[in-house]
Simulated scan of single mutants.
Amino acid sequence: MSPRWHITHQDGTVTLSRHLPARFDVAASTQLPPARPVRLAHQIRQDLWRGLSNLRGFSPVVRLEPTEHGWEVTAGGRVMGRSAPSVEATIDALLSDPAKRTRWVRQARMMS
């Protein structure tokens, strides 16, 4: 994983961002089961970037907050300039994709 990414830990919350401070100009949220947070954040960030790489000035941010049953995931990021309302719908669709969700959790599963 690239050292160009900032990983911030605060009170159990893990935030992965390219720039500090992390900023959400656009975002969507979902719940995911327990998994290694940094690995999970990187998995989500990769698909987020693939889905929005054509958005000029986009810089992904993924935040994972612990819940009783896993993680509350907020994905989105910084946008330099204007963004269309459809960007948040695109992020929401990405976070809702069953195949991607399964892959993310499988790749970041907790080792017992």
Rank of each mutant, 00 (worst) to 15 (best):
S2T: 09
P3F: 10
R4L: 11
W5R: 09
W5L: 07
T8V: 12
Q10P: 12
D11K: 11
G12K: 00
G12A: 00
G12S: 01
G12H: 00
V14K: 11
T15L: 00
T15A: 03
L16C: 04
L16N: 00
L16G: 01
R18T: 14
L20V: 05
L20K: 08
L20N: 06
P21W: 01
A22R: 07
A22W: 03
R23I: 14
F24H: 03
F24V: 11
D25F: 11
D25I: 14
A28D: 07
A28H: 14
S29N: 08
S29D: 08
T30D: 03
L32A: 01
L32P: 01
P34Y: 06
P34L: 08
P34I: 14
A35C: 02
P37W: 05
P37L: 08
P37Y: 05
V38K: 02
R39H: 13
R39K: 15
R39N: 13
L40P: 01
L40Y: 02
A41C: 02
H42C: 13
H42N: 09
Q43N: 08
Q43P: 04
R45I: 11
R45Y: 15
R45H: 14
Q46S: 13
L48N: 04
W49Q: 09
L55P: 13
R56Q: 15
R56P: 10
R56C: 13
G57N: 10
F58N: 10
S59T: 11
S59I: 14
S59Q: 15
S59R: 12
P60C: 02
P60N: 04
P60Y: 05
V61F: 06
V61E: 01
V62H: 00
L64F: 06
L64H: 01
P66D: 04
P66V: 00
P66F: 03
T67S: 03
T67Q: 03
H69E: 12
H69P: 09
H69C: 10
G70S: 05
G70A: 07
W71I: 00
W71V: 00
E72S: 12
T74I: 10
G76Y: 04
G76A: 09
G77S: 08
R78H: 12
R78C: 14
M80S: 09
R82E: 13
R82W: 13
E88C: 10
A89L: 14
A89N: 13
T90D: 07
T90Q: 10
A93C: 09
A93V: 06
A93I: 04
L94T: 00
D97M: 11
D97Y: 08
P98K: 08
P98T: 05
A99W: 06
A99N: 06
R101T: 02
T102A: 08
T102D: 06
R103K: 08
W104D: 02
V105W: 05
V105R: 09
R106W: 07
R106G: 05
R106K: 08
Q107H: 15
A108T: 09
A108G: 05
R109V: 02
M110S: 07
S112N: 13
